[in-house]
Amino acid sequence: MIIEHSFIIQQGKASERQLSIEDDSIVEDLKKLTNIIHKNGSKAVMQINHAGSAASKYVTGYEAVGPSSIVNPRKGDMPRELNKKEINSIIKKNMDAALRVKEADSAEKLLSEEKADLIGVGRAIYKDSRWAEKAVKSLI
């Protein structure tokens, strides 16, 4: 069972009632949810994310941000471009959130095999700040 995508920080919240994985206060409730899912014979996976340029100031209280100042194709808004320190902070928040999920026993195998999208991307960007640019060029 894939639990809904959950925001890692308020600035990256996608919708008003979106589930949070922002801090340790949610871990005990995640354990309860995971236990119920496991008790019923299923595995649990949690998607963690930062909505980036798709975030709304109405929902988050913050301006939308992204790795570059490119208009969001669905919303038509121009996000503020993140600097490298901010990008590294979001990567760290993704990693922290992944550890919370792992601590709650809901995605241990996924994380240990490095198959979680955001963690994999986070690690790639952390190693090579031009990763996204190279990925786009490889598609052209």
Rank of each mutant, 00 (worst) to 15 (best):
S42V: 03
Y126Q: 15
E16M: 11
V101Q: 09
K39A: 14
N35Q: 12
S138H: 07
Q10I: 13
T60H: 03
G122P: 02
S106E: 03
K109M: 12
P67Y: 14
Y62L: 01
A14Y: 04
N35V: 05
S112A: 14
G12H: 05
G61V: 07
A64C: 04
R130P: 00
V71L: 06
E28F: 11
R74E: 05
L19N: 10
V121I: 15
A124Q: 09
H5Q: 07
S69P: 02
Q11H: 08
M78S: 08
G122C: 04
I9F: 05
S42E: 11
N83W: 05
I87H: 05
R130I: 06
V59W: 00
A124N: 10
A104N: 07
A132K: 05
N88S: 11
N49G: 12
I70Q: 08
I140W: 05
I8R: 04
A64L: 03
K92L: 11
V136A: 10
I21E: 06
Y58G: 05
G12K: 00
S53D: 07
S6W: 02
E114Q: 12
D77Q: 09
K115S: 09
L118S: 10
E108Y: 09
K127H: 09
H50M: 03
S56I: 05
R17H: 10
G66S: 15
G41F: 03
V59S: 03
I140E: 10
G122E: 02
S106I: 08
S106L: 14
R74A: 11
